[in-house]
Simulated assay, not measured.
Amino acid sequence: MGRIVKSIGGLIQSVRREKLANLFLIVFLTVVLGAALVYVSEITANSKAFTGFGDAIWWAVVTVTSVGYGDFVPQMPVGRIIAGILMFFGITLISILSGTVASIIVDRKMREGRGLENIKLKNHTVICGWNQNAIRLLDEYAQKKGMKKSELVLVNDMNPEDFQSIAAKYPDIEIAFVRGDFVNENILAKAGIGTARYAILLADTGRKPEHGSPDERTILAALAINASNSEIFLSAELVNSNNEQHLRRAHVDNVIVNGEFNAFLFSTGVRESGIPVLIKEILSNKSTNSLRQVEIPAGFFGKSFSDLSEHFMKNGKGILIGFISNEKKMTLDDILSDDSSAIDAFIKRKFQEAEIDIAEEQQAEMEIRLNPGLEYVIRETDSAFIIGNA
């Protein structure tokens, strides 16, 4: 239903852009004028073909659209002559109108397929870049519950034919496409980054070196995205872990280093061969016992880890392994006194002169607590990690 509403909205915008209002106005005036002339000619001749002007309007609409119900028919010669003229003009105008609207729809679909259309979405996810992990990412959206109806916008330089193949492969996901360089702010604006809820920056490893390294482009894109939408949740993929600090300064919420855990999995697999298999099972989207983050059920805040663990086990949800907490860091304002003293003002001024962003320190920090102990007291800032079905 949502797609139908958006398609109608897009068609209306296209109609406005193509100035079809004039054509609709001509059709409307033709119907009204034809109905008025026939109605007057019939009434003047004391014909009872129409009981009122409303009947004449209905007859004119039916005649112009070539439906021809036959419930109202002019009886006088003059009325029939006018009807013949109205039929001729009606067929011509409706043909022009329907052809123009069809052309607009086809052109719009072609522009969307080529990545040239502006995206008019809200709370969607923008995926920038393309590499070997992109298809796996789309697989996650296609297979996980609650993510199938996601609205995704791909921003990259792939060929339109390749995008059409991808869209056909994932019919349950609403995928749009913007073709261009995701570092360009105009391209990001075309993808609706200002109204997006999430953005994912994939390491763009397929570009030539003269366009910059993948990490450089990821950092530039992160800065551009946050400049356009400071509320967006931004995830980014890095090739070199040394660049993580730059993404943190760009307010990236989630940083993933490509191949970061490969060495661990290889070395662990030599000594304890079951661990890589276990990790693959936990992280697989096809497994029924995958790792999940869920909200704490109502009534369990203030209770213990043991209580919640027992609740999940009894209800078949899975095994509770820990929590993630969004803790607010201690800020400069927490340290300084409430009085606006000269010393406090001096300290704040020195921070500003050193170009230290006090507001940046106020961001919430995620803290992971795995196996916190049976007596751990659950807080309102906690979410739970479980292995099993959420």
Rank of each mutant, 00 (worst) to 15 (best):
D338P: 01
D338A: 04
D339H: 02
D339N: 03
D339F: 03
D339M: 02
S340A: 06
S341I: 02
S341A: 04
A342G: 10
A342W: 13
I343L: 10
I343A: 08
I343T: 09
I343Y: 07
I343E: 07
I343V: 10
D344P: 04
D344Q: 09
D344C: 09
D344G: 10
D344W: 04
A345K: 04
F346P: 06
F346T: 09
F346M: 11
I347W: 03
I347K: 05
I347D: 00
I347N: 00
K348G: 01
R349A: 11
R349D: 10
R349S: 10
R349W: 03
R349V: 07
K350G: 00
K350S: 00
F351T: 01
F351C: 02
F351Y: 03
F351M: 03
F351E: 00
Q352F: 08
Q352N: 11
Q352R: 09
Q352H: 10
E353N: 12
E353D: 14
A354V: 09
E355Y: 13
E355V: 15
E355G: 11
E355L: 13
I356V: 13
I356A: 08
I356L: 13
D357F: 10
D357Q: 12
D357P: 08
I358A: 06
I358F: 08
I358W: 07
I358D: 08
I358K: 08
I358T: 11
A359Q: 14
A359P: 11
A359T: 13
A359D: 12
E360C: 12
E361G: 12
E361N: 12
Q362I: 04
Q363C: 11
Q363E: 14
A364N: 12
A364L: 10
E365L: 15
E365P: 15
M366R: 09
M366G: 05
M366A: 09
E367Y: 05
E367C: 06
E367Q: 03
E367D: 02
I368K: 13
I368Q: 14
I368N: 13
I368Y: 15
R369A: 07
R369Q: 07
R369D: 04
R369Y: 08
L370G: 14
L370W: 14
L370H: 15
P372E: 11
P372N: 12
P372L: 14
P372V: 13
G373Y: 01
G373I: 02
G373A: 03
E375A: 03
E375M: 03
Y376H: 02
V377N: 02
V377D: 01
I378M: 03
R379C: 06
R379A: 09
R379D: 08
R379T: 05
R379S: 07
E380I: 11
E380W: 10
E380D: 15
E380Y: 10
E380M: 12
T381I: 01
D382H: 05
S383Y: 06
